[in-house]
Nucleic acid binder design. Structure first.
Length: 204
DNA sequence: CAGTTACT
DNA sequence: TGCA
């Protein structure tokens, strides 16, 4: 049973047990050998993000001086993104049974000092499907608010194995990661946190 | 345009 | 927490 922080913002604590987390992380490691983490940059300014990224699935989210977009290939290797692990498709089918299949899984790696400022996920053509995110590794201080940048926000601690869904009236909610709590998980050998974000990109 | 950072 |  999820905790509904606000309409459409669903927190599934410990949705994945330790064994499932380890199995999923191994699959993500395999993806990263084919599609290595890269450092995205901000449009126009070229400022690097503190998180590093990769993707799996037919489409991947990238950001560079030209802007934000989804594309079918890795920006450095120019090769297609690896397939999405079936276990992620299964998770989507369980938690978002009404939605069309996910097309993108963005893999964000947070080193201990990495952060993600408050933003919306709005580069998709269809906002009817939810955004599903899986936390692996160190606990993160996650902030979520409403559809405008100003306005009240709440913050919660997302731990390894937690799943968070932004759906319905919260699909365009502003959200971000204030900081990690280093050393809170031993799942990731090198420390830090992997966040997997599943999205439907094109209209169903 | 922006998932940025700095400062209060 | 909110603003530039």
């Amino acid at each position: 049973m999820p905790l509904e922080l606000q309409p459409g913002a669903l927190w599934f604590r410990e949705a994945l047990d330790r064994a499932a987390q380890a199995a999923l992380l191994a699959e993500i490691r395999a993806v990263l050998t084919e599609a290595p983490l890269f450092t995205p940059t901000m449009p126009r300014s070229g400022q690097p993000f503190s998180v590093r990224m990769s993707n799996c699935g037919p489409l991947g989210w990238v950001s560079d001086v030209a802007g934000y977009r989804y594309q079918s290939f890795h920006p450095e290797t120019r090769r297609p993104w690896p397939a999405m692990p079936p276990r992620l498709m299964d998770l989507w089918n369980r938690l978002a049974p009404e939605a069309a299949p996910p097309e993108a899984c963005l893999i964000n790696y947070y080193a201990p000092e990495a952060r993600m400022s408050l933003h919306q996920d709005r580069d998709e053509a269809d906002f009817t499907a939810p955004v599903l995110s899986v936390s692996l590794g160190d606990t993160a201080v996650f902030r979520v608010g409403g559809e405008t940048r100003r306005g009240p926000t709440r913050s919660i601690h997302l731990a390894s194995g937690d799943v968070f869904l932004l759906s319905g009236p919260s699909r365009l909610a502003f959200h971000g990661i204030d900081r990690l709590l280093p050393g809170t998980s031993r799942l990731v050998d090198e420390g830090g946190r992997f966040n997997l974000t599943l999205r439907r990109v094109t209209a169903a």
